[in-house]
């Protein structure tokens, strides 16, 4: 179940601003699934344009609380543990300020280094 939560708009910008974050990638599996399905179909037309309007940081409201997933690329000079911890802490602080909802998980995936 995926719901667009009120604070999600700001999460992309927030994560991008964390020192050491070089790139932000779509974290929702939906994007990948849609893209793959489109391309694998016996297409009668050009593949769909990249889906850019979905927020890249993925958020979902589930029974046990909010789940946030951010997929990032970091600079070669950075430590993945430090940058991912900074991203986590920034998201956690943002959630506390935005009504402090129960948090089930904040996931940070370092998908690319350098």
């Amino acid at each position: 179940m995926t719901t667009v939560l009120p604070f999600t708009d700001q999460l992309d910008a927030l994560v991008r601003q964390v020192p050491g974050v070089d790139a932000l990638y779509p974290a929702g599996s939906i994007v990948a699934t849609v893209l793959t399905a489109t391309l694998d179909a016996v297409a009668h037309r050009a593949p769909a344009a990249p889906l850019v309007h979905t927020p890249l940081v993925h958020t979902a409201q589930q029974a046990d609380g909010v789940r946030v997933t951010a997929k990032i690329g970091i600079g070669a000079a950075e430590s993945s543990a430090e940058v991912s911890a900074r991203v986590h802490d920034a998201i956690a602080a943002h959630l506390r300020q935005a009504g402090n909802p129960p948090v089930a998980q904040i996931a940070v995936i370092v998908a690319r280094i350098g």
Partner: peptide, 11 residues
């Protein structure tokens, strides 16, 4: 509640 990971691909 934190799940921090680096992907095998990145490594």
């Amino acid at each position: 509640t934190a799940r921090l990971v680096v992907t095998e691909g990145a490594v």
